[in-house]
Design a protein around this nucleic acid. Structure first.
Ligand code: FES
Ligand code: FES
Lengths: 143, 143
DNA sequence: ATTAAAATATGATAAAAGTCATATTTAGGA
DNA sequence: TCCTAAATATGACTTTTATCATATTTTAAT
């Protein structure tokens, strides 16, 4: 479904959503441990996310990563698209490329309802929404 | 969702379901082309499937692969499990391992209803069912 | 029996995904 | 201004997945 990298990215951004703010930056060392991802790996992913303005960062002493108010509105699909590319979630289950709902492949109907639904969830929900669920005890960490 | 190998395997078995029989064996050369998978690759997968009695085969002249009546009853999940292992479809979206419906991770509810449903389809439908859909014009090839 | 045609077993190579290492740049504090 | 702490850029290494190649075994036909 997601690549490993996307899972890591989501975990990292969610961690920042819950624990960081403009006035409380977190450095990569202190992100990697609680989300259980190798430091050098998550550093690279955060840099990529930063380039796409999905997370914010400042360098130097007391620098680190954080989510701005705007960052909190990031849709989950944006994170996945940046890391995995736009095709991964949409491609045919059997990788047939000229298939669609008019000419569905033999597995199309097994998965379509779910997939549509799932992708819509990713398109409609923000990081802020996920963080809120956690705060309300609707979903759980640790990551 | 599926690995490439699983997709190939499903395509190959489905092709056999539609075109082969005990009295009409098909050799690997004549499977690989219509399903659009490299010959050496699909050969290896068919051997693995054969070892697990998901397809049948005989060697020597006029040999080849085919599906016995029993093979036609193979559940789709069996193919996937043989090729991808049993965990791939079931693991948490964020790869958290101590998560369940009691303590769902932040993405759990996005995907669970659909995933359960999808896996059930794979557990309930056989290759024969897929082939029937194709024959009835409910779903389409080519692979 | 001999030969040829097929699957089978085994392993080598290539490409992609995941992981690690390090030199450079930026920003803050002494 | 100079030093230090942080992200950034770049690239090397490792593991997994995908792909290709080949020698062996089995079976059928002559
Ligand atoms: S999943 Fe194959 S046609 Fe839609
Ligand atoms: S998908 Fe993560 S807990 Fe179920």
């Amino acid at each position: 479904m997601f690549s490993n990298s996307s899972k890591y990215a989501i975990k990292a951004v969610l961690y920042l959503a819950i624990h960081s703010s403009e006035s409380k930056k977190i450095r990569v060392k202190n992100i990697s441990e609680p989300i259980n991802v190798p430091q050098a790996y998550i550093a690279k992913l955060l840099q990529e996310l930063s380039r796409h303005r999905i997370v914010s960062s400042t360098r130097g002493p007391n620098g680190g990563f954080f989510l701005s108010d705007a960052n909190m509105k990031t849709l989950l699909i944006e994170i996945v698209n940046v890391i995995d590319g736009e095709d991964r979630l949409n491609s045919c289950l059997l990788s047939l490329h000229n298939c669609n709902s008019e000419k569905p492949c033999p597995l199309h109907d097994f998965a379509r309802p779910f997939r549509t639904n799932f992708i819509e969830s990713l398109e409609q929900n923000t990081i802020e929404d996920l963080a809120r669920d956690v705060k309300r005890g609707k979903s759980f960490l640790p990551l």
